[in-house]
Structures are given as structure tokens and as C-alpha cells.
């Protein structure tokens, strides 16, 4: 067995999985609170990458140093994506909260198409080159051929943000309110929790993490276009389902699981069928274990 190849795939999968996990958290949190698959979540990730690209280019022409550019561009992208997420919720989902389940879903598909075409019209439908914002670290030199500096930054940044999110959910008052709302919105409202505020914050956190993922992966891969959100969105959704939708640790685990299995499948089986593999995994999981790895099976009461 070729161990170096194996480690290459393992670490590649780890990078990929961290990004999936970052996006999947947004899906899972929104689903947990309002039981809606936010179809436009992948587009928020794409918007984050685009905003990051634009801000980074502007800062680069102004002559900022590279690490500064990365940090500033990431912050601006996160802020803007959070605002997009918030606006999206207010315009397309909030008026539909009392409607059935089909209407918000169709509205979300409409929102996703809208944002893609917004980028096509306002920017471009071509691929744009994303500047390399992550410098090469010296201490990464010995293993740079299997695990580059950008991989390292992606894994560390997503690890830190996920740790913060876990602490936030566990120990702050808002986190408690979120858990309560996810459990039973009506009851939470009776206890004086402002459910609208909780939902807004959920969208803000989910969108911010997606934007962070967008900026990191865009500077890792080196290009963006309007369509990157579609695939990333579906794969992150798959990750959320694998881990058990509604569960935040599940989304992290599911993201890593999907990233690793995708990496190994393309490395050892067939690289042409990378996307087919993710979809098949999704279908298989939805059919045999729709509650995911971490989720609890739901019993429906009549």
C-alpha cells in the first residue's frame, strides 16, 4: 500500500471536509430552528467568496500587505454575507412562516436562482481568478507537498470557528434560546424568547460561517464563478444529512465524513464520478438512515 498517496488523500479529504462542515452548519442550524432547507445557502457562500475577491483586489491595489488583506477581506466578506442572509430571511422566508412547507422551499429555490443571476448581471458569468492570499509558512515546508499552508489555514480556521460556535451554543444566553427555539418554537415564545431574533441570529451565524468557508476555499482553489455555490451547497447539505440534520456536531462530523469519503473514492475508485458519488451517498443515507449519524429517529404522532 502506498502510504504517501493514502496520507495525501486523507489530508485532502480533511481540507475538503472542513469546508463542507462550515457550510453544513448553516443548513443544519436553519433547519433546526425553522425546519426549512435553505436552498440559497450555497449562494451565500458564493457571495462571500465574491465579496472577498472584490475587497481583496481593492486592498491589493491600495498596497496593503498580504496577511492584512486576507484578514480584512475575510471580515468584510463575513459581514456582508451575514447581511445577505439576514435580508434573505426577512424578504423570502419570514412572510411565509405560517404557510405550508412547499411554499418556503420554492421561495428558497427562487432566491437561489435570483442570487446566481444577480452575480451574473452585476459581475460576470466567467471564472474569476482569486488572488493567493494565504502565504507559505516556513514550518509547513517539510510536508508542503501533501498538506500546503492553505490546507493548514483552512483546517485551523474552521476548527477554531467551530469550537467558538460550540461554546456559544452551549454557554451563552442566546445559545440557550436557540436550543429552546429549535426544540419547540411555540413553547420558547411563551417563555419570553424573541423567536424572530433567534431566527435572525441563526441566519447571521450560518451565513458568516459559509462566507468564511467561501473565502478560504476560493483562495485555496484560486478561482470563483457564480455557480460554485450550487455544488458546494448540495454537498454541504449532504454533509448535514449524513450527520443528522438539525444537529450541529452532526454537521461537523458529516462534513468530515463526506470530505474524507469523497477524497478516497476519487483517489481509489474513479475521479470522473466525484459528484455522482456524493449524490449517491446522499440518496443512500436519506433512504436507509434519514436521521443521520448523530440524529435521533423521529416518531410521527397523528
Amino acid at each position: 500500500m502506498d502510504w504517501q498517496y493514502f496520507f495525501e488523500l486523507l489530508l485532502g479529504g480533511l481540507t475538503r471536509g472542513s469546508i463542507y462542515a462550515l457550510i453544513a452548519i448553516g443548513y443544519t442550524m436553519v433547519y433546526g430552528v425553522i425546519e426549512l432547507i435553505n436552498f440559497a445557502h450555497g449562494e451565500v457562500y458564493m457571495l462571500g467568496a465574491f465579496t472577498g475577491l472584490i475587497i481583496a483586489s481593492v486592498l491589493a491595489t491600495l498596497g496593503f500587505p498580504i496577511p492584512m488583506i486576507l484578514i480584512l477581506a475575510a471580515i468584510v466578506a463575513i459581514v456582508y454575507s451575514a447581511c445577505y442572509g439576514l435580508t434573505m430571511e426577512k424578504v423570502a422566508y419570514k412572510p411565509l412562516r405560517s404557510a405550508g412547507r412547499l411554499s418556503p422551499l420554492i421561495s428558497a429555490i427562487g432566491m437561489s436562482l435570483f442570487l446566481q443571476n444577480y452575480i451574473i448581471l452585476a459581475q460576470t458569468s466567467d471564472f474569476l481568478a482569486f488572488p493567493r492570499l494565504i502565504p507559505d509558512f516556513e514550518f509547513m515546508e517539510p510536508i508542503a507537498h501533501v498538506f500546503g499552508s492553505s490546507d493548514f489555514v483552512i483546517v485551523v480556521a474552521s476548527g477554531i470557528s467551530m469550537a467558538f460556535l460550540t461554546l456559544f451554543i452551549k454557554f451563552t444566553k442566546m445559545g440557550k434560546a436557540m436550543r429552546a427555539t429549535a426544540q419547540n418554537r411555540k413553547m420558547a415564545m411563551l417563555l419570553g424568547i424573541d423567536a424572530d431574533k433567534v431566527i435572525s441570529i441563526t441566519f447571521i451565524i450560518g451565513s458568516s460561517l459559509a462566507a468564511l468557508g467561501g473565502v478560504l476555499i476560493a483562495s485555496h482553489v484560486g478561482m470563483v464563478n457564480f455557480f460554485i455555490g450550487f455544488m458546494a451547497g448540495i454537498k454541504a447539505f449532504t454533509a448535514a444529512v449524513l450527520g443528522g440534520i438539525g444537529s450541529i456536531p452532526g454537521a461537523m462530523l458529516g462534513g468530515l465524513f463526506l470530505g474524507l469519503s469523497e477524497s478516497f473514492a476519487t483517489g481509489y475508485i474513479a475521479s470522473d464520478y466525484e459528484d455522482v458519488f456524493a449524490f449517491s451517498l446522499l440518496v443512500v443515507f436519506l433512504i436507509f438512515r434519514p436521521s443521520g449519524i448523530m440524529g435521533k429517529a423521529k416518531v410521527e404522532k397523528v
Binding site: A92, L96, A99, P104, S107, G110, L113, N117, Y118
Partner: peptide, 12 residues
């Protein structure tokens, strides 16, 4: 983009 807007507005 018009279709997409119409989809959202129609649902709302």
C-alpha cells in the same frame, strides 16, 4: 432573474 423574483414574490 425575473423568473426567480417572480417565484419568490408569487410564494409570498
Amino acid at each position: 432573474i425575473l423568473f426567480a423574483t417572480a417565484m419568490v414574490l408569487m410564494m409570498v
